[in-house]
């Protein structure tokens, strides 16, 4: 698997279809695991989708006292194992991106697992498959590189030249799941 979750926050129209789709995914227990939020409601209507980065060395797993957060062979960071999770919410506070959610009723943590049953078979996750404005995409690594290049070129056309110190400001965020084999 060499597919990438590709987010372009600017494209988000705030329809929350991704959240509705997330609720329908297997093992998600009718609760959405992603976020759609306003940048600053008093300033603009810009929204952005937010998913888990699937870190290679996840802070959430490192702060878990029960060692409940596991990473699959593909590199997907799963929700806390239900039998181990003691419900301390350290992961919620440890995550630099504020992703893990907590179900107080059932006393367990849940987080975006990139729809593991889908992405495991190279099928796009629920959120990416329904996004109408392509703010969330599930694409090949090469396609992602192309998109990023295009984005940089667009900035050049507009008269901006990225330099070593700030080149990352010019490309949209990308993350995803890599394997070393491919």
């Amino acid at each position: 698997m060499n597919k990438i979750m590709y987010l372009e926050f600017e494209r988000c129209i705030g329809c929350r279809a991704c959240q509705a789709a997330c609720r329908e995914c297997g093992d998600h227990d009718a609760k959405e695991r992603n976020y759609v939020e306003y940048v600053d409601f008093t300033e603009s209507r810009q929204t952005f989708p937010m998913l888990c980065m699937q870190c290679k060395d996840p802070a959430c797993a490192r702060v878990c006292p029960a060692n409940a957060i596991q990473i699959t062979d593909e590199g997907v960071v799963l929700s806390a194992m239900e039998e181990k999770c003691i419900g301390c919410r350290n992961c919620t506070f440890g995550c630099p991106f504020g992703i893990p959610k907590f179900d107080f009723e059932k006393n367990k943590m849940y987080k975006c697992d990139m729809c593991y049953d889908r992405t495991r078979h190279d099928i796009a996750p629920m959120c990416a498959s329904v996004c109408p404005s392509d703010a969330i995409r599930f694409i090949d690594f090469d396609e992602m590189q192309q998109l990023r290049r295009k984005r940089t070129q667009m900035n050049l056309v507009e008269g901006k030249k990225p330099q070593e110190g700030n080149k990352w400001d010019y490309v949209p965020e990308f993350f995803g799941v890599y394997t070393d084999q491919s």
């Binding site: 926050f9 976020y35 939020e37 940048v39 600053d40 952005f48 937010m50 919620t92 506070f93 995550c95 630099p96 991106f97 504020g98 992703i99």
Partner: peptide, 9 residues
């Protein structure tokens, strides 16, 4: 957590 997500965006 909400502010952290916002910061990233």
């Amino acid at each position: 957590t909400g502010c952290r997500r916002r910061m990233r965006a």
